[in-house]
Design a protein around this nucleic acid. Structure first.
Length: 468
RNA sequence: GCUCCCAUCGUCUAGAGGCCCAGGACACAGCCCUCUCAAGGCUGGUACGAGGGUUCGAAUCCCUCUGGGAGCGCCA
């Protein structure tokens, strides 16, 4: 039997980190076993579903590279099918019409709570023979009173529920539209899903779904309930941290593989290994190795993981992600070779592409002014001669390449009788405006002869200037 | 309240009875490397929630408690 998994988000909220990890596990498991990954959009709640949320799901999955083999299927397009199963259940006596009003149900629940019982529908409409005039009934699934339901979960092991704990849930609203738990059952059955991988907040829904599956006369799929992801403070994910659209991580400069690696390591591990390529994860992943307990997001480690992937990436690949970040800063990033050169030079000094772009502004725009402290220390009467010497030596260079530039700077240091730092740092401030940049030779090579010399001249003027 | 789930450093985790007076990673501190910032290397501190069992032996098995979480919708 070939493996078939599905990721079934609801477009009522943004696709966030938690959903992405569930999607990753579903995808990984399908890929690992040469199976099929199905994408299904659970949009039966038309009131709350939004096009924006749907867009975020589709865009997010695409950005991450979690490609699906089937779908996206939309539940709203399957209404006829749900109606058919409901009719079947009704005809077979496996479901019945319920005419209870919301007020009546609220009262029932309140009374049960007062008696310290679990609030549940008491089945009072089960034996009703005649319809109640003027009331559009809901349809309830008739849950077996006796027996037990065992959810055989590959992560948690067997979980047993008494059937008596389950009540007759509504499968069709009074307007005739089907509800979530019912649609899931019909879909998973129709789509021949073999492994249901989802958040553990669904554990309590599972026995009801199994009962409906039994009513349909089919064997339940394998279940794997993955633990929740919490915010950095250990509390439930909120807007403040993490519960934002996955696209925000893209905009923040995360690499898909970096984010996926971090997320995969939340709840799953392979010995002591921290870094995985997507291919590696696919090869090593097993849903049964997933942890049972919830895990908190650690922004520092998320950043570190991304940085490690930047470190292992190629300049060309980084350039593709760096370009939009530069453009977002209003810079001209049309020179692809230059962007790649910058990416290569900055590769080991940025945790995100956004950070990389922010640190690379001087490569793409004139240095307007110097950081005051940096200028005071490095562009003054004392360093003026050094700057002049550098300027002269560089201007005489034939090949504007890092090795030659390096030698030139070394030579100036020797001739001035100072350490390399005493020469490199003033140059750095002169060409970048600040104290931080890639190695000076690499920086100058990327900047080019013309730009470098012009900035050195300007710095020399500043160093000699009366303004100081 | 009822049902279900969970429990190793601050955080992510290794650990499936002796290899563990608990290992790795992030973060933190110090040192090294060094033209800045990084990257990298080395060193350091901090954890098996509590109590009972089982066993020659328990982080690992069982029970209770405590703590956290989820569900109990004509939401998904």
């Amino acid at each position: 039997m070939t493996v078939r998994t599905r990721f079934a988000p609801s477009p009522t909220g943004m696709l966030h980190i938690g959903g992405v990890r569930t999607a990753l596990f579903c995808w990984l498991y399908a890929r690992r076993h040469g199976g099929t990954f199905v994408l299904r959009i659970e949009d039966t709640d038309r009131e709350r579903s939004t096009p924006e949320a749907l867009h975020a799901i589709l865009e997010g999955m695409k950005w991450l590279g979690l490609d699906h083999d089937e779908g996206p299927y939309y539940q709203t397009a399957r209404m006829d099918r749900y109606a058919e199963v409901i009719r079947q259940f009704l005809a077979e006596g496996k479901a019945y019409h319920c005419y209870c009003s919301k007020e009546e149900l609220d009262e029932m629940r309140a009374a049960q709570m007062a008696r310290k019982e679990k609030p549940r529908y008491d089945g009072r409409c089960r034996h009703r023979t005649a319809p109640l005039q003027g009331v559009n009934p809901v349809v309830r699934f008739r849950n077996p009173d006796e027996g037990q339901v065992v959810v055989d979960d590959v992560i948690h092991g067997p979980i047993t529920f008494d059937s008596s704990e389950l009540d007759d849930l509504i499968i069709a609203r009074s307007d005739g539209t089907p509800t979530y738990n019912f649609c899931v059952v019909v879909d998973d059955y129709d789509m021949r899903i073999t492994h249901v991988i989802r958040g553990d907040d669904h554990i309590n829904n599972t026995p009801r779904q199994i009962q409906m599956l039994r009513a349909l006369g089919v064997e339940p799929p394998v279940y794997a309930h993955v633990p929740m992801i919490l915010g950095p403070d250990g509390a439930k994910l909120s807007k403040r941290h993490g519960a934002v659209s996955v696209l925000q991580y893209r905009d923040e400069g995360f690499l898909p593989e970096g984010l996926l690696n971090y997320l995969g390591r939340l709840g799953w591990s392979y010995g002591d290994q921290e870094l995985f390529s997507l291919e590696e994860m696919t090869r090593l992943f097993d849903i049964g190795d997933v942890n049972k307990s919830a895990s908190a997001l650690n922004p520092d480690k998320m950043l570190w993981t991304n940085q490690q992937h930047i470190l292992r990436s190629t300049p060309d690949r980084l350039a593709a992600y760096l370009r939009p970040q530069l453009e977002a800063l209003g810079l001209d990033a049309t020179d692809g070779a230059k962007v790649a050169a910058v990416a290569k030079a900055q590769q080991e000094r940025a945790r995100t592409l956004k950070e990389m772009a922010a640190n690379s502004v001087f490569f793409f725009r004139e240095v307007e002014d110097y950081e005051p402290k940096a200028a005071a220390k490095n562009l003054n009467a004392e360093t003026a001669p050094v700057l002049a010497a550098v300027r002269a030596r560089l201007a005489a260079l034939d090949a504007w390449r890092a090795p030659a530039l390096h030698e030139a700077v070394m030579a100036v240091a020797a001739e001035q009788g100072v350490g390399l730092g005493k020469v490199a740092q003033p140059i750095r401030v002169a060409v970048s405006g600040g104290t931080v940049s890639p190695p000076i030779d690499v920086t100058l090579e990327i900047l080019g002869r013309e730009t470098t010399l012009a900035r050195l001249d300007r710095a020399a003027a500043f160093a000699a200037g009366p303004a100081r």
